[in-house]
Design a protein around this nucleic acid. Structure first.
Lengths: 236, 236
DNA sequence: CCGTAAATCAACCCAAAGTAGGAGATACCT
DNA sequence: AGGTATCTCCTACTTTGGGTTGATTTACGG
């Protein structure tokens, strides 16, 4: 699957590409990390890439050190299998361009990830050359999506601006609120959540009230529906 | 997208094909209905096809007259945009082979529809010849799915047998229970549902208790999650 | 005509969910 | 030191959800 340019203020391959010295790669597959590191070192002359195998570790690094110049994020982490990783990283690493690498070419997933603020969506099936070309466009400030992707013809019940709005709301959740959200989306009751997270039910209620207020839901069924709408979890 | 044979007790094109005299086509696109009717009349010598433009009308016809020999169902009806149509028709027209025609090639959707009991899943992008060939296989008793589809590699969190089980439970819902289910999956409260359907809240509760018992859910969030798991509504 | 299935509604109870307000602890930033 | 944010927990209250039982009506089919 080749890539097309969706938003493009400047020329495709000749734009002013930012210098990427410090790159963070988030991927649970060691081989993939190595391959990316070597390929990008050759193609872009970057010194060294930091690798993390899951979301939690990536967040840890981002919070402790200074932010990298760019991030490559695999969608299918053991930690976060939907747009959750993107939503979370976009909050923690605000301003840093994030390119998502995924085997999933579902238009709805692409929409969800782009709405969450990704700078590019890159198919894992791309050749090394095509992937480099796509990344060059990403780091030139363009929004890059797979060639076949058209946000308009995709069978979605939600417009892209709406998804962005919702993604932003979810991005405003605190860590604990996110953990509780995940439990809600597993169909658990407050009592079960309190047991799972080792906190009191009162605390669970406090967090739920806060997160429902943030994302604009009045019933927990609506919470589930909103999370599903931006494909926060899972991959299908 | 060509088609492959998934379950096949007999030869591919030479099997004992059932004689289809009385066909029901459910599709909201008039042109599509006509094209199908003409094509199938020529290819299979069927007399006349009955057409309905939505789920409700199709059910009406199925309940009032005798069952047709076969059904062609478009997934994207104004009435039912996910596997709902398939789940419902499978109940009303038990025993009648149903072939689903859809533009959606999402593996998860194909799985959901096949799990609901479809005899075949036929891509709308097929040529006339390929479509006829696929239908011939369907009416020979084979389960036909698009060529690229592999239930094992599809990114699903639910095994096919589980989806079948869940689909069967949803198929056991009565009409009113289905209507209420739909409202629940819109995130509405019981009071809102009672207003929307012009019945008392007590009746809503009665139906919800019955439907939750049928599908095996204890909380309404779980109802939503189960409906999403088999892609009962929407298309993404 | 009788049995069954479905839809309707009521009354009741208890549990769960959600609301409101307060309050202590920690941590981080300015 | 003061401000902000987060997590924690509490009490008290209202609303909603879910379970149970039972009654009535309509409709379909043997």
């Amino acid at each position: 699957m080749r890539h097309q340019i969706v938003v493009e203020p400047c020329g495709s391959a000749s734009g002013v590409m930012m210098k990427v010295d410090d790159l963070l790669i988030v991927d649970d597959h060691p081989l993939m990390c190595e391959a990316l590191t070597i390929t990008l070192r050759v193609a872009f002359g970057l010194r060294q890439a930091q690798c993390e195998r899951n979301l939690a570790a990536a967040i840890q690094r981002l919070k402790c050190g200074k932010l990298p110049d760019a991030i490559l994020l695999d969608l299918n982490l053991p930690d976060a299998k939907g747009s959750e990783g993107m939503v979370t990283l976009a909050r923690v690493a605000a301003g840093v361009p994030i390119a998502v690498i995924s085997a999933n070419e579902d238009p709805a997933m692409i929409s969800a990830v782009m709405a969450a603020g990704a700078q590019g969506y890159i198919s894992k099936s791309l050749s090394r050359e095509a992937m480099c070309a796509a990344l060059r466009r990403v780091w030139s400030g363009e929004k890059v999506t797979p060639e076949g992707y058209d946000p308009d013809d995709a069978p979605q019940h939600l417009a892209l601006p709406d998804m962005e709005e919702i993604a932003h709301r979810f991005a405003s959740l605190t860590h604990q609120q996110s953990r509780i959200l995940r439990q809600i989306c597993l169909g658990k009751a407050n009592k079960e959540i309190s047991y799972a997270l080792n906190i009191s039910e009162a605390t669970v209620k406090t967090h739920i009230a806060a997160l429902m207020d943030k994302i604009g839901a009045r019933r927990r069924t609506q919470v589930v529906l909103l999370a599903k709408a931006i494909k926060l979890y899972d991959c299908d």
